[in-house]
């Protein structure tokens, strides 16, 4: 970031922040794609982005089970021009070195904490780090590469991160940073689907995981400017219907608590989430005053 302030950026210069899912519980359970295969595809993809434009910048953030961290930043990669140590470029060896250190740290932290019910990775933390990095780039001056976030995730969504993830999505939307996502897990990720939908990114769930590299280069390699001229896969539709809190069924229309926004499929006298007492749904005058009453009789 500091090395290129004098260069003129055109609209096709990209800053790609790659969020790498390093959740060990997912990868050891994954049968269709091994972690080393996954890494091969991703490393080749990172390299090709850097080759597309010499001003392009790639930042890789690992999102583990217990923590997340920056593991690669092409702008501060001093040894980029250095010699290759035998069989692979310094880019790869640096990244792998950092990744290994990260795994050790992640494991150590895991021993101190209790395990969660769902083995999700820390997507919210990684998203926040990516957005912080992008904010820093925005403030570095009027000339900066066009940033976007690419989530390479496979772990299931962590429900406890819901609010944090949604907040990250909305702040990405506000700063006009698209979140692309490539989900390699078994089921679709509702978090990533919504993230890409809200921020006008692309969501792809590859059918052939052994061709992951092809998916990545075809869909996610183009810069944001060129994207407007290209037909990219669009999801058939994102299901935004909510589930009610009482029976967990998907509903088209329902009742919403005016205090905590809990959703119900039929009328309740009292909100089961926050305890607000509702008035009669029919009479207009009494309901408005009653709905405001949020203090429960405890």
């Amino acid at each position: 970031m500091t090395s290129v302030p004098s260069k003129l950026y055109s609209d096709d210069v990209s800053l790609v922040v790659v969020l790498l899912d390093t959740n060990p519980f997912f990868w050891t359970a994954s049968s269709s794609l091994s972690f080393s295969q996954f890494l091969s595809h991703v490393l080749a993809f990172v390299n090709s982005i850097l080759l597309l434009n010499q001003l392009n910048q790639v930042v890789v953030i690992a999102s583990g089970y217990n923590t997340c961290d920056y593991i690669y930043d092409s702008s501060s990669d001093a040894s980029q021009l250095g010699s290759e140590d035998g069989r692979m470029p310094s880019l790869y060896s640096n990244l792998l070195q950092k990744l290994e250190e990260f795994m050790i740290k992640d494991e150590k932290l895991g021993k101190e904490q209790s395990q969660r019910a769902i083995k999700s990775s820390l997507l919210s933390g990684a998203l926040s780090m990516a957005l912080c990095y992008i904010q820093r780039v925005f403030r570095s001056g009027p000339l900066h590469p066009q940033p976007r976030i690419l989530c390479l995730q496979g772990s299931p969504d962590g429900p406890e991160q819901y609010v944090a993830v949604m907040n990250s999505i909305f702040s990405a939307q506000r700063s006009m940073v698209p979140i692309d996502s490539c989900y390699v897990g078994a089921h679709n990720s509702a978090f990533l689907q919504q993230a890409s939908y809200i921020t006008a990114g692309v969501y792809v769930k590859p059918q052939h995981l052994d061709g992951l590299f092809q998916y990545l280069t075809t869909v996610f390699a183009t810069d944001l400017h060129s994207r407007s001229f290209i037909q990219l896969p669009r999801p058939a539709g994102v299901d935004f219907r909510a589930s009610c809190f009482c029976h967990k069924t998907t509903i088209d229309m329902g009742y919403i608590c005016s205090v905590c926004l809990s959703i119900f499929c039929n009328h309740h006298k009292k909100c089961s989430t926050c305890g607000s007492v509702f008035g009669q749904a029919q009479s207009d005058t009494s309901s408005t005053s009653d709905l405001k009453r949020k203090a429960p009789e405890t």
Binding site: P24, T28, S36, M103, E107
Partner: peptide
């Protein structure tokens, strides 16, 4: 799990 992941790296 961690060990196997480190192995792949």
């Amino acid at each position: 799990s961690y060990a196997s992941l480190r192995d792949s790296i």
